[in-house]
Simulated assay, not measured.
Amino acid sequence: MEWIDKAGYACAVGWSGSYCVTAYVGNVLHRRPIAPGSLVEAHARLIHTGRTSMHVLVTVSSADVSTREFRAATTCILIFVAKGSDGRPAAVRPWVPRSRSDKKLASVAVDHIDARATIKDLMLDDVFAGKAGARGRTLRFLVPPGVVNWGGNAHGGTVMRWIDEAAYVCAASWAGEDEAASDAVAVYSGGIHFFAPVRIGELVEINAQIVYTSTHSMHISIRVHTADPRRPDEMTLTTQCLSVFVVPDGDGGTRPVPQWTPSGDEELSLWEHARDIVQLRERIVPISASLARED
């Protein structure tokens, strides 16, 4: 997740010539795992610009060091906003698609805008209970100075890594007591909206909750809140995300996972929103890795 953000950031800064912040990351499709010791390549390309925003498509590929044959592992779209010296959004020069792939990818970026807005509204409408019992986990810590970016805040990619770690803890604990549960892996992350910066030295609280289960998958809603350590009860929502985890069975398939049945109006609302998001996501056609890398 950090590699994705770094590649996208480099692309956005290169185009805008100014400091940029991550505003959104969507449709992170983890097609296959990346083995330790692999060569990794993160390829970013601009596919759409707004007045102050840039839509960047990132493809992460990996290869065995002996063959150097790269295969795509992950693709996603990120949106960055350019910032001026006053910290306010700054206009960026428009990007004009020229090649066949440019035009097709630009069309995809525009088509995703309405679906993304709907998913964002659904996620914000969730009645996100702070205490979710066995189906939820919470991580708390102070933002360390080592993750500071050019703007003086935590890198968006670092926040994404924290989200992934919290979701993993939630998925592994829900999946069961046996050793296989520790093998839970993310196959999808989406709807990652960044609402406010995460400042160095702040208290971070990451809540991850199971909001939907299918026979073989766990859908986890994650929210990141921050606060001044002197006022820990005054939390601000900075980031939200929905991730999907499965437990591999070792034979190319996935294990069944314990099912969650909502009880009460609040839990039922969470379940219904998650189901609606799943249906919306299925309407979004994934971007093929070959198109992403086509000139």
Rank of each mutant, 00 (worst) to 15 (best):
G87S: 10
Y188E: 01
T67L: 10
V187I: 14
M1K: 08
F70T: 08
V244C: 03
T238Q: 09
A91E: 13
M160L: 15
W15G: 03
E165R: 01
S66N: 13
V147I: 14
D114C: 10
R68D: 11
I220H: 02
W271Y: 15
A7R: 00
R116N: 10
L203N: 02
A274H: 12
R199W: 10
C170A: 13
P144N: 04
R255L: 15
G252K: 03
Y212D: 06
S290N: 07
L280D: 03
R199M: 12
N149P: 02
G26E: 12
A72H: 04
G8V: 05
M218Y: 06
T239H: 12
V92M: 05
A44I: 04
W150T: 13
G252A: 03
R51N: 13
V58E: 03
A134D: 11
T138Y: 01
N149I: 06
G17R: 03
L46R: 09
D233I: 00
V96D: 05
E266N: 09
L105Y: 07
V127S: 11
F194Q: 01
D228F: 08
A91P: 02
L291A: 04
L268C: 14
I113A: 14
H216M: 10
V169G: 08
A82T: 04
V185L: 04
A274K: 07
A10P: 00
G151A: 13
I79P: 01
V108S: 06
V60Y: 08
H225V: 00
E202Y: 14
K131Y: 13
V56I: 15
R45S: 11
A10C: 06
A274R: 07
P256Y: 02
L78Y: 02
D111S: 13
L203M: 10
P232Y: 05
